[in-house]
Design a protein around this nucleic acid. Structure first.
Lengths: 188, 188
DNA sequence: CCACTATTATGACTAGGTCCTAATAGTAAT
DNA sequence: ATTACTATTAGGACCTAGTCATAATAGTGG
C-alpha cells in the first residue's frame, strides 16, 4: 500500500533535505504519485521549488567562499573541472603534510587529494569510492606542488572508473584507479 | 563610444566570474547591447547559462566541502601497538568527516586511519606506503565508531605487507592491503 | 450514501534560457 | 562607391521546471 499523506510528506521533507537537487518529477516517481500531489505537498510544507533550493545552496557556498578563500592547505584547489570527464587540482605540500623526520608527505594527503578529485569529477549527487588500487611512485617532499589529474575512463555496471595521476614537475608521484559508486544512472 | 567586442567579452567574463548570479538581461543592460549579443558572447566564450552557473556553484558546495577539512589531526587514537605485528586504532566519525547530504564518511578519512596505522606498525625509522588495494565495503555514518586493526602479514623483498581491516560493531567497513616501503632491513 | 479529504488532470502563464534563420549596421579594402 | 566581411539585432519555435487556478475523480469514515 502506498504511504499515507502524512508519512509521505515527512519522507519528502527528509528526501529534499538530503538531496535538494531533485525535481518534482523524480519525487513523484519515487513516491508513485502525481507531480501535482508533490506540488501540493511542497506547498503545505512550504518547501520552495528546485531552482530556489539550488540558489539557496549556491548562495551559501558563495558567501562562504568569499570569506574562506584561503585556498592554502586543504585537499587541493580545483583548477579545472569537466563533469564526467576530467578534473585537475593543485596541492602544495607544506610542513603539516609531512613526517617531521624526513619531510616526506604522508600518504593519506596524496590519497585525499586524489580521492576527493575522483568524487568531484563524478556528475552525480552521490558518489562514493567503492575500491581503489593506488601507487605511491615517488616520495613527495615539503615545498613541492602536486598536480592531480583525474579522468573518467569508463563504466562497469553501476560503477564509474576514474584514473588519477599526480605529478610533481611532470614526474608521476601517485597513481590510482578509483572505482566509484554512483546512485543514479550516468547522464549521457 | 560603446566597447569593442573583445573588450566587452573580457569584461563580461570578469563580471560573470565575480557575480555569477547575473542574468543575460542584466548583462545586456549594463553593456548597453541586446540580449542576443550577450548570448553570442557567452557562446563564444563557452560560458554556461545562469542556471548552470548556479548549479555549478551549488555543486562545489556539495562535492567539495574540501574547503575546510581538518584532515590533519584526527586519524584515530592508537589503543594497542605491537611493532612489526599488529596495531589497533579507534576513530569516531563525526560531522566533519561526512558528506553533509547523506552523513556518509568521506573515504579519505577511513583511508587515513588505516594508512597511518600501517605506518605506525612498522618497526622502522622510515616507512612509506608504496601501493595499496583498498575496499570500502560499507558506508560509515556519522556517530559510528570505526576500529581499525592492522596486522603485518609478510614481506616481499624490501616491502612489508600490512593488512588493515576496519570495523563498525564487528562489521567490516574497510579493507586494505598496504605494501610498505622501509629503509632498513627488518629486524628479526 | 453523503461529506470530506486526497489526488489527479488540465490549461494558461512564467523565467531564463537554447537553437536556428534572417535581416540590418558598421567598417575596411579595392 | 561597391563589395566583403564581421558584428549586432530580431524573431520564432522549443525547453525545463516550475506557478496558479479550476475542475473532476478516488477513497475513506461516519
Amino acid at each position: 500500500m502506498k504511504l499515507k499523506k502524512k508519512e509521505r510528506q515527512e519522507k519528502l521533507k527528509e528526501m529534499i533535505e538530503e538531496t535538494p537537487f531533485i525535481t518534482d518529477e523524480e519525487l513523484a516517481k519515487t513516491f508513485d504519485v502525481s507531480i501535482q500531489t508533490i506540488r501540493l505537498d511542497r506547498l503545505e510544507l512550504s518547501i520552495p521549488e528546485l531552482r530556489e533550493r539550488i540558489k539557496h545552496v549556491a548562495n551559501n557556498n558563495w558567501n562562504e567562499t568569499l570569506k574562506a578563500l584561503p585556498i592554502d592547505e586543504v585537499i587541493g584547489e580545483v583548477v579545472n573541472l569537466e563533469l564526467d570527464n576530467l578534473a585537475i587540482s593543485i596541492l602544495d605540500i607544506k610542513e603539516e603534510h609531512v613526517f617531521s623526520r624526513n619531510m616526506i608527505a604522508r600518504g593519506h594527503h596524496l590519497f585525499a587529494q586524489a580521492n576527493s578529485l575522483a568524487v568531484a569529477v563524478i556528475n552525480d549527487e552521490l558518489a562514493l569510492t567503492a575500491n581503489a588500487e593506488i601507487y605511491f611512485t615517488r616520495p613527495v617532499k615539503a615545498g613541492e606542488r602536486v598536480i592531480a589529474k583525474a579522468s573518467v575512463v569508463g563504466h562497469d555496471k553501476k560503477r564509474t572508473v576514474v584514473e588519477v595521476k599526480s605529478y610533481v614537475n611532470s614526474e608521476v608521484v601517485f597513481e590510482g584507479k578509483f572505482h566509484m559508486y554512483r546512485t543514479t544512472e550516468r547522464k549521457s
